[in-house]
Amino acid sequence: MDNIDGSIRISTKRRGNKLGFWFFKFFLNCFGLAGAYGLLYFVCLHYLIFDREAVSMCLSYIKRRFPKAGFFKMQLHVYRLFISQGKQLIDRFALISGSHKFNIQLNGYDDLKKILSAKDSGFVLLTAHVGNWQIALTTLKKMNKHVHLVMRPEDNNAVRESLGIDSEDESISIISPEGYLGGVVESMSALKNGDIVSLMGDRKYGFEAVEVSFLKDKAYFPFGAFSIAASVNCPVVVLLSSKVSKDKYIVDISNVIYPKYEGPLSKREQLKKYVQDFADILDKYVAEYPYQCFLFHNVWEKD
């Protein structure tokens, strides 16, 4: 639930318990990544059979990504999606704990550097619940800019851990979308200072959503990132990551959108075009990496 003038609440059920995490840690330490991955096949089967809520949360995506699949094939896709997400969670833990090093290939960095050197303002970094976005965010440190993550306080700890942010790290800070006006003012101020503001493009938080086409169906994505960027006159850089092998991730920042208002259409209508551009980028991504899309909320349903 969200509201422009007040509280924003999206409840997220946490799965797993301390004993479960201990087992994964144990397998990771004793048998490496492959060992911990092996455990996933049993755990995910358990979730597939007994956690119907988790299954139904994935189905809105799976049904649209694999429209011709029958019931059993659909369950298989859900199972593969669970395993894929599990692997990326293990990777994240392995990265934080330092038990494993990953090869992270960054695409589009040089072009982005050119864009940044030509402008004083910062940019909006738009990401989504696809791939291992927390691992992808670690690449931000390379940009040598202050980064403001717009995220809910309850996500702080997990993301702080993923990025290795400690209380003394002054290069990354958090803007809460649950604050007044959804963190709009802080975000605009940060961009004007030349900083990076990172937002999730598939979560509304305090912003309204517009109707776009995603996976050949009407979906609702927020326009907040684009309205802020258009007002500050800065680009929106789309950040996507994909796991391409056991040890390798590709982080892509080559998609850059320049939102601006021009012409007679209302601002809302103009922003819709940019949100559609973002949805098209995601469309292309999920066509290539169908099991790395972790959209566990129904973006095709209008609130």
């Binding site: 604050g179 709009v184 003012v185 101020s189 305090g206 007002s231």
Partner: peptide
């Protein structure tokens, strides 16, 4: 929310004011 962004811009462009402390 779109109007919120616009008001922030209006304040700056027309009155030279930037609200930083939310």
């Amino acid at each position: 929310s779109l109007d919120a962004v616009e008001i922030v811009v209006l304040l700056q462009r027309n009155f030279g004011l930037e609200v930083k402390d939310m």
